[in-house]
Simulated assay, not measured.
Amino acid sequence: MVSKIAALALMAALGMATPSAAGDEKAPAPGSNPIFRDRFTADPAPLVVGDRLFLYVGHDEAQRDEMFNMREWLVYSTTDMKTWTAYPPIMKATDFKWAKKDAWASQAIEKNGKFYFYAAVEHDNTHPGKAIGVAVSDSPTGPFVDARGSALITNEMTPKGPHSWEDIDPTVFTDDDGTTWIAWGNRSCYIAKLKPNMIEIDGPITEITPPHFEEGPWLHKRDGTYYLTYASLDRSTQRDEHVSYATAPAITGPWTPRGLLTGSGKYSFTIHPGIVQFKGEWYIFLHNATLAVGDQSGAIGRRAVTVERLRYGPDGAMLPVVQTEAGVSVPTR
């Protein structure tokens, strides 16, 4: 096993984040990135409830050379984007009794006085591959319980994809008419309407894959325009995922590609956008792999959630986002 000193030397040589010696590092400014520094977190999904913003994340627990080890989902909340309150884990992947592992990307939404939590997991051998479950709670901080007793979406429901992890990364969005939609996917992006009970698909599943779509879709609406933001990967020129987006005049499309929004997360192959308006400002949450916790450095399975302000041009275009260490700790320009 490589010694801690040798590992730190190697990290330094590679330009990776390393833990500072005691007393060498000032406390990070509130609102700076990464947001949470006591554990590794990924796949941020914001939800505003009243005057509080809740942020749902997966808990990265990969050890040594593991790629991913995600067993549970966490939630934090804030009223000022600077100080955050942590809560007990809201759910484990295996709380879906039909799932066997992998607490992958998720999103929660409020509807009819309840909170619905959509999440990607690995299904058991009755429906092999990744699947999407839905859980419900009376509180945004859980605990959440399986709302169906079975998966909402399974791999055989989208037979186009050549791999077993096509059905991941759900995003949910309720339109002005009260209709809720769910989009998801890896390599192919799908969208479907949900029934009013929030636990059944209502109608056909439609493919809406934009250019270089990889995974991590996020739906939101602003001034009558629908936005589909996602992790993109141009395999001819890019090594790591970036963030791109498309817009449409209706949730069903047609979707027009708008290009890149931001580059890759530092040291991270993956990236995952989550967008929300909170107290008059727009924010985009992402993740990178710059955090070190104890003797564990950031890695593909040890990521850290970040946040930046999001701005729009007069034509509704989202302006390019520069990922920073300062995050929202500095005043609005």
Results as ranks from 00 to 15, higher is better:
I251M: 00
R71T: 15
E166H: 15
I109D: 00
I251F: 03
F54L: 06
Q107M: 07
P257H: 08
P19E: 14
K97L: 07
T83Y: 11
A93V: 07
M157S: 04
V49C: 05
R258E: 11
M157T: 04
E66S: 07
E122D: 15
A29R: 08
P249C: 06
T270N: 13
D177R: 02
I182R: 10
H59A: 13
R52S: 05
A42N: 09
V121Q: 14
A304D: 06
D138G: 12
A131F: 00
E308N: 05
A45I: 09
L291A: 05
R37L: 04
Q107L: 09
I271H: 00
A108G: 02
A6T: 06
D315A: 14
H272L: 08
M198E: 04
R39Y: 10
A131Y: 01
H287I: 01
M11H: 14
A62C: 04
T225F: 03
A246L: 10
Y283N: 07
A13E: 12
I208C: 06
K195D: 11
P46S: 07
D146A: 07
V134T: 09
M1E: 12
T225M: 05
D240F: 14
W98T: 06
T174K: 04
E325L: 08
L233G: 00
E214R: 05
E66D: 13
T332Q: 15
K97M: 09
A231F: 02
A289E: 01
T229S: 07
K26R: 09
H220S: 12
Y76N: 06
G316T: 06
Y226I: 02
A292L: 01
D102A: 10
K193G: 04
Y56Q: 00
T83R: 15
P217I: 04
D223F: 01
A299Q: 10
M70N: 08
M198C: 03
E241Q: 12
S232A: 10
E156D: 15
D177T: 10
S137C: 05
A151T: 03
P30H: 01
G280L: 01
P46T: 13
M91I: 04
A29Y: 01
P143H: 13
R222M: 01
E207I: 11
I168P: 02
S32W: 03
W218Y: 14
A93T: 08
S3Y: 05
R333G: 15
P30A: 02
I199C: 11
S297P: 13
